[in-house]
Design a protein around this nucleic acid. Sequence first.
DNA 1: ATTATTTTATGCGAAACGGTACAAAATGAG
DNA 2: CTCATTTTGTACCGTTTCGCATAAAATAAT
Lengths: 202, 202
Amino acid sequence: MSEKKRGRPRAFDAKVTLEKAREVFWDRGFAGTSLDTLSAATQLNRPSLYGAFGDKEDLYIDALEGYRAESMGVLADALDPSLPLRENLARVYQRALAIYLHGETAARGCFLIGTATAEAIQHERVREVLSRSLDDFDGEIEKRMKLAIERGELPDGSDPHTLARLASAVMHSLAVRARAGDSRETLEALAQSGVDMICGKA
Amino acid sequence: MSEKKRGRPRAFDAKVTLEKAREVFWDRGFAGTSLDTLSAATQLNRPSLYGAFGDKEDLYIDALEGYRAESMGVLADALDPSLPLRENLARVYQRALAIYLHGETAARGCFLIGTATAEAIQHERVREVLSRSLDDFDGEIEKRMKLAIERGELPDGSDPHTLARLASAVMHSLAVRARAGDSRETLEALAQSGVDMICGKA
DNA sequence: ATTATTTTATGCGAAACGGTACAAAATGAG
DNA sequence: CTCATTTTGTACCGTTTCGCATAAAATAAT
């Protein structure tokens, strides 16, 4: 895995650097972030940044991909099939909010929905990542819905595809509203409404 | 209303100019749009633009406000109380999609959710407009839900506040997914699911 | 006609932008 | 030790950015 390379070794951890870059992009968006800002945040000079990740768009795409991958991990964990569907959904929203409300200045919402959406028209690669991320999320939720139907956790005749997209819609709304500055209480209430909408009022 | 002013008259219509500027911001976002691009699109040189609207952020805020106002008009019209709730909601989503899918390159989604969300962290005024827009939309929908409950269009014990926010959530999802490139059919299916979720499966 | 007022057009200017050339530094290979 | 290789830091490149200074043009008031 880690063969020693020939030349001068890197003085930084690419993964850590990518996380720092993500923080900056998250707050400022892609177009609103300069290489100088990225350089300062990562404590790498521009040539090192360029050598390791390519140009600004490459770096942004990398950051998006990392976020997508992490998010899918969080989602899979929240959807632990040994728990009831209602609890699964509540966990999904709860963990999303923990991420969305983490911002220092104001809540940042979802990195993808909050920043990639804006670039999706002009940058096709960004749109591709965004689209794939939404689809992956939908797919994972839908799998859980199918399982719920098999187990009788949902009424007969329920359509897993439809339910998954409605559950995702609540997620998208949380993402936008968190970035618009809605309070934690407001967002938690919406999350609860989403759970009740899918699973029935408790 | 229109008293003749003293100096040299304007050679442009501010309202038309604002609409052209909005188109550019819609495709490229705030940070991704340069004054040169705006100048070319509006066929005004920068000083004229500056004199009429202020700096780039002022112009963007103006464009957002115009969109918000128009959207509320469209919403009020779609919610014509002489029609059943189910039809009202279907009209709301249908008209939203007509706007969201209007883009030339790719579908543009919602101007506010697609571009203002990205700037909401760094630009407080943008966040304020975004937040207010979401609230206004929620409020108008909630009013219609209350009416529906009075009329018996919804089950007893329905909570208009919750229903409004769920209906809005579907809207937010349409906004994001349109900009991510989802097909018209996919979006219309989600809209239909939203109507059924609120009003019951037909 | 003269003056005051407002808009238009050219063009400047300082700063920020993304990206890279180049040499020094740090490692492994031979 | 010497050389090839890779990363690092400085400095720079040409371009683009936003905003404005300035003067010409077009109108109303006097």
